[in-house]
Amino acid sequence: MEKVLFLAHNEEGGGLSRACLEALSAARDLAQGLGAELAVGLFGGEVSGAAEAIGGCGAACFLAAAGPVFASSRYASDAAACEALCRASGAGLVVAAADSRLSRVLPGVAQRLGGRIDTHLTGLWVKDGSPAAARWFYRQRMVAEFTRSERPWLMSVESGCFEAFDGPGAVEPEPVAVDLSEACKRTEVLGLETPSADEQTIRPDAELLFVAGAGWTKKQADGRTHVKEAEGLILDFLNRTKASLGSSKSLVDISGEGHEVISYLTHLHQVGQTGATPRHPKGLAACCHGEEPHVVGWRFIGERRAINLDAGCGWAQGKADVLYVADAFEVLARLNELLARA
């Protein structure tokens, strides 16, 4: 019989991240569909809070590899912990969130276990008594459904694809011994660099994604560019709505070319073909133009609207719910005025 292990690490505050709770739902559904036993494997500095947060998930066992040495996100110690948890659980199927910490470590763990891995799954279900999964290929250009026969099979699931599990309960995880050699400690985590709240323009949990296109830095009808004005309008809008900022590749590239730039824009903001494909309930694109490869930047946005001067704009036609054929400079200025009054 199959056995499913849900693998997760605790958050700084002691609980589990939303992404991990979503992955737990995926793992539970899978176990249920297969009639398989569910196990939970937790690693991190102190995991009792995390265990309690999901104590009611119905897992047959809770395993933990905890201690200060696992507190920080370090590949070697994380890999050792995950390997030990997987081995201790004896699971053939392992499900985890595709967050940065787990995405870094899971493939190596799969290798150590002699197993296989599939990452960034957007769907996981049971078909004909076997697990089946979906994920996107070629930078979100096409979606595939597949299965595999090898075990252990490790899987990471994308955030935003499953309901977050909610079912706390008292539970005492069983400690799992991890053999951590000195060689695993050659890397020392120095800390996190996070943008201050004021500088924060990437907000993964925001309701709205604002996608800025290269049109903001192009010459306008008067034959001049108005980049400083664009910069002010966009930042004002973001601060007032707490929206997350995404940008088209061309706008980011322009910023790197020594042209007049939108100063707070970096490659981290890039969405689309060679950038991120964030998940937000709503998306507003302005001055974006492009076709299929670029538009993948908002493939996973719920409701989409766009502002563009070109009614035939490929970014919007057939991909947005509403296309406003208008001057984005003027619209955003008015919008900011309205937001200021609201």
Binding site: E257, G290, E291, D310, G312, G314, Q317, G318
Partner: peptide, 25 residues
């Protein structure tokens, strides 16, 4: 009568058909 497949706007022909781009510098 644009159909989004064969009859597309001029700009979409650049992107969809010509895949036009220019390196920086």
């Amino acid at each position: 009568p644009f159909d989004g497949r064969l009859l597309v706007s001029h700009q979409d022909a650049l992107l969809l058909g010509g895949k036009v781009q220019a390196p920086a510098g």
